[in-house]
Computed example of a mutant assay.
Amino acid sequence: MHKIYSMAFSRVYPLYIAKVERKGRTQAELDQVICWLTGFSADELQALIDSDATFTEFFDRARMNENAGLITGVICGMRVEEIEDPLMQKIRYMDKIVDELAKGRAMEKILRT
């Protein structure tokens, strides 16, 4: 079991915020892409952050977007579309779209619309 599976999402979320804000994006945009991926409402996302849900719990509750499979590319040295562990793939999908947001990619491309 990977260490990140038992890590609280609330520990990583501020790092995501800092990453996107350093690049001129906003927390609202970050929340938008996370909610798009997971199917959470803003209130559900905040409740999970407040509850210190682990990544396992976070993604167990997620209703993954049907277009999540369109997220491709390399993150952390791995091609996200080739990751076999379903939970790790979901985590890397999120890492990838946060990275795309931080790199200034257009929101409609991040959301695969």
Rank of each mutant, 00 (worst) to 15 (best):
K103S: 06
Y13P: 03
K96P: 02
S10F: 00
E82Q: 14
D99R: 10
S10Q: 04
Q46V: 13
F40S: 08
T26L: 05
E44A: 13
V80T: 14
T26W: 09
T113F: 09
T113L: 12
S10V: 02
Q27P: 08
Y5H: 05
Q27W: 02
P14C: 01
K109C: 05
S10R: 04
G77L: 10
I75K: 12
M1K: 07
T113M: 08
Q27H: 13
K109I: 09
M88N: 10
R105E: 13
L111D: 04
Q46E: 14
T54R: 04
C35R: 11
D43S: 15
A102Y: 07
F58N: 03
C35P: 06
M78D: 05
R25I: 05
Q89Y: 04
R11P: 00
R61W: 01
T38D: 07
G104Y: 08
I97C: 04
K103E: 14
I97N: 03
V74P: 04
L111V: 08
R11D: 14
Y13S: 10
K23D: 03
C35E: 09
T54I: 06
L101T: 02
A68I: 13
R105G: 01
I49N: 10
R63I: 05
M78H: 06
E21W: 09
P14Q: 01
L45V: 11
T38C: 14
L30Q: 13
R63W: 02
P86F: 10
R92E: 06
C35H: 05
A18E: 12
V33G: 03
L37H: 11
Y16W: 13
L45T: 06
M94F: 10
V80Y: 08
Y93I: 04
V98W: 05
A53S: 15
N65W: 07
I4F: 14
G39W: 12
D85Y: 05
L101I: 06
G69W: 12
I17D: 01
G39P: 06
C76S: 10
E66Q: 14
I110K: 04
A28N: 01
I91T: 05
A53M: 13
K90I: 07
T54L: 09
A62W: 12
G69E: 10
K19N: 00
E84I: 02
G24S: 04
T72A: 02
P86C: 05
L15P: 00
L15K: 15
T72C: 03
V33S: 07
T113I: 11
E44T: 04
C35D: 06
K96F: 03
K3A: 09
A18V: 04
E100K: 12
M1A: 12
W36M: 06
R79L: 09
K103V: 00
E21A: 08
E57F: 00
R92F: 15
A28C: 03
A53G: 11
I97P: 05
R22A: 07
T38G: 09
I4R: 14
L30Y: 15
S10M: 01
R11W: 03
A42K: 15
V12N: 07
E82T: 12
Y5F: 15
K23S: 03
G104F: 08
M78G: 04
K23I: 02
Y5K: 03
M7Y: 09
I75R: 14
Y16G: 02
K103R: 10
M94Q: 11
M94I: 09
